[in-house]
Amino acid sequence: MNVYWMGLLSFSGAVALETLGQVTMKIGTRKMPPGAGGILRQILTNLWVQAAIVSFMTESIFWTWTLHLMPLIIAFPMGAICFATVALCSAHILKERMTPQRWLGILLILIGVVMIGMKA
């Protein structure tokens, strides 16, 4: 398998784990009082939160591997796809209310982040 496919695979893994981590973390904090004590208790007892933390830690391994295989100038703007994946999961898994204005905002942000990441 050549290095570009490996990089793409590693990158896909990183994006999937980021999305998974965000969604599971949101599920885990749904009934959480926002004080520090509540947060600590959730970290120690809530499986969703723990799954999210594991997800994020694994993601950083995938991301490090991706940057090993692919230049930052390519990987970084591609990372903007996380905004789309998280938005889609929020709509379909978390059942959040996604208005057209929110979708438009997220689209502009996604394009904007790609443009910021692409240095001439």
């Binding site: 208005t99 929110r102 905002g105 942000i109 790609v114 910021i116």
Partner: peptide, 19 residues
């Protein structure tokens, strides 16, 4: 290109924040 991107992100964030 980056200035454009910055502007787009700003507009996008304003739109989202007003939902």
């Amino acid at each position: 290109l980056q200035f454009c991107g910055i502007a787009m992100v700003l507009v996008g964030v304003i739109l989202v924040s007003r939902t």
